[in-house]
Design a binder for these strands. Structure first.
Lengths: 206, 206
DNA sequence: CCTGTTTTCAAACAATCGTTTGAAGTCTAG
DNA sequence: CTAGACTTCAAACGATTGTTTGAAAACAGG
């Protein structure tokens, strides 16, 4: 009987794992630290997820399923509206991630976990992400290609690669700019998003 | 007596640690893996470096001292030449990192280690890097400010933060674009650098 | 209330972690 | 050649790693 509603053991493990993976990395966060933070027995991880590797995958799945859905939903809306411009397309890609990073019921650190996945050159993890969520990037790439017909395929892919890097790095809050005192997290994030879209659109167009 | 010249125990440890930190992260690479790869006794790490944390710092110091020196040297040349333009400034920042990533006598994976340092939100490591090498970014920021007088301080810092993110991510080779078959590593890297400068310059200017 | 399933738990597993030890080996100056 | 400093080595330290176990607890439908 606590003030906060009681989440299931599964959910508590996922939340604690997400936070600790963001802070200390996948290898750096131990299952004992995770289960202690989740207020759950150590064996619960292997009972519910089978192994630490499976837990890691599940941390991604929990967020990326919805994130990908929202991104493609916004992309579809833009496509339906006919001629979109670059900023709207970038907005469709970024906004769902922004919402996630502002979600107080968890998820506020997930983008950092996602950025860690890029840093891990772990081929297994990369394949998992590519196999399950690569189609999102593919769909967006096609939309960008339609909007930037003057760029040949190779040129476009290079620019998108760089753009994804800038977005990933920024959304993970890896930069040196700190939130100003008196500024809310939301204001800070929204300001970052504005600059991010402006910067990236210029880079793609140039 | 081997074909390759004999490096000192210290150097071999640093090289092996760099490679393994790049591949598996600081927590993910154990000292036993490092010493085995370096063909060196386990105790040698603590003898020569005191601790794993000190070894990590030394891995950075070995490369960043020279990298920072070269960057500032190129920056000084540009300043001396009078009016520079954005692309030259970005080139001064990137080229030393590019050379490092092409150095076959080691260093080819260091940029990946550096990117990992950003992913680690470890405050100790961040302070170490900021205290010892932060002045390089400061000097470059001042040069960018002179070149982009229409941007106010806050706007400039946001753009530079995003630009550093794009550079870090790309130089660490975190992207999805693979080197084409038949293309040398040098050609691949130089092509990446060209796109990177073009993209970033546009983002800063816009 | 009882039976069978699902979940939690303390305890232990072998393996690996960073670090320390003291002796053996290598080197260099006198 | 020898004394002393520097470096390497195998072995062990206690602590921590992911995972497994079998029993206790909680829950379910009949």
């Amino acid at each position: 009987m606590q003030g906060t509603p009681q989440f299931s053991t599964r959910q508590r493990i996922l939340g604690a794992a997400e936070a600790l993976f963001a802070e200390r990395g996948f290898a750096g966060a131990s299952l004992r630290q995770v289960t202690a933070a989740a207020n759950v027995n150590l064996a619960a991880v292997n009972y519910h997820f089978g192994s630490k590797d499976n837990l890691i995958e599940e941390v991604f799945r929990r967020r990326l399923d919805e994130l990908s859905r929202k991104r493609l939903e916004l992309l579809a809306k833009i496509d339906a509206a006919g001629g979109a411009h670059l900023e709207a397309l970038l907005d469709a890609f970024i906004t769902p991630a922004l919402e996630l990073s502002l979600d107080r019921r968890g998820g506020s650190v997930f983008m950092r976990v996602l950025a860690r996945a890029f840093a891990e050159h772990n081929s297994h993890l990369r394949r998992f992400l590519s196999d399950n969520y690569g189609y999102v990037l593919k769909d967006f790439a096609a939309a960008f290609a339609r909007l930037l017909p003057h760029l040949d395929r190779e040129e476009l892919y290079w620019r998108l690669d760089i753009a994804v890097g800038a977005l990933t790095y920024a959304m993970a809050d890896f930069g040196v700019i700190q939130r100003r005192t008196g500024q809310s997290e939301r204001e800070h994030r929204e300001q970052m998003t504005r600059h991010l879209i402006h910067f990236t659109a210029a880079g793609l167009r140039a």
